[in-house]
Design a binder for these strands. Structure first.
Lengths: 157, 157
DNA sequence: TGATATCTATCAAGTACTTGATGCTTCGCA
DNA sequence: TGCGAAGCATCAAGTACTTGATAGATATCA
């Protein structure tokens, strides 16, 4: 728990947004993983269920792209979640081999437990920053997400 | 390459900073991993070398905490980096069994190749956001990193 | 000085992914 | 209508970590 040294937080490195973003996400994972595990939900599980809630009926491949993992990994994850009865597969109306993924009733309930933890963390961040800067950060992150895909790596000189 | 659908970017989910942060880092990883690999450097490698540059003489355990992985994982990573001649171990002045990690001459040079890529990405983000908002984002992320460890998870009601 | 606690490194075994390759199904087009 | 291209799912094998446990070295304090 002592990050007091925090040598990586010196201006030289943190003045890069790319690095600050990485470190911030890392710190976020570090604090939210343990309580999530306590309610039986890993970070990946949460990401999958959360995505499934906002985009019901998504296919495995689409899910993979959104969460940032491979289709194979999705297959493994979903298999376990189906076994636990948190999600279910239905037939796709057009494609027969493709299968839609949906949250079950139980899945919604379990997700809600995790949500209580995350929204408390969210509240803490908002109160630490204040509503003004909290809103700014939210907006700026959205803009970064939009801007990133436009980038093309430089030619090796 | 088509993230045109982007269903997870809707206001309902992205209005959470915790989620936006995750997605932004994911998107960042997605664009920077391929070019980094092209110069023979994985994301973990880069993080290790970068941390070692700003904090020379760090121990494996300290490195593990800063990068957010286990000491065992550090041992595996460093073993390969030593084999490639990018870093080296020296004896710790006080503890005999503890070993300091340092970047080699070669390591600095290789890191520089990766740096060219990252700083180009950094430039793109800065130009997309504009200097004003870029600076804000940098500052806000720093504040989030500081605020996170203070949080304690809620009691299960 | 010597017992206890702490921090380091590392071995062993398991888990969560990855890259690579294949078959099936639908779609666009001649 | 039939051919080729593209997208989805899944099998197999390898890699990058993880949790769990152990041993050695130093600091703390009675």
């Amino acid at each position: 728990m002592n990050t007091s040294r925090s040598t990586t937080d010196d201006p030289d490195t943190l003045d890069r947004v790319t690095w600050a973003l990485r470190r911030a996400d890392l710190a976020m994972q570090a604090v939210k993983e343990p309580p999530l595990r306590a309610v039986g939900m890993s970070g990946s599980n949460y990401a999958v269920l959360m995505t499934l809630r906002t985009t019901p009926g998504i296919t495995g491949a689409e899910l993979a792209r959104l969460v940032g993992i491979t289709p194979q990994a999705v297959a493994l994850l979903t298999a376990k979640l189906i076994e636990r009865g948190l999600i279910e597969r239905r037939l796709h109306p057009r494609h027969r081999s493709v299968q839609e993924l949906h949250l079950t009733e139980n899945g919604h309930a379990e997700l809600e437990k995790a949500e209580r933890i995350i929204s408390d963390l969210e509240r803490h961040v908002r109160e630490s920053l204040g509503p003004q800067r909290y809103g700014q950060l939210r907006k700026l992150l959205g803009q970064v997400i939009q801007a990133l895909p436009e980038w093309t790596p430089p030619e090796p000189s």
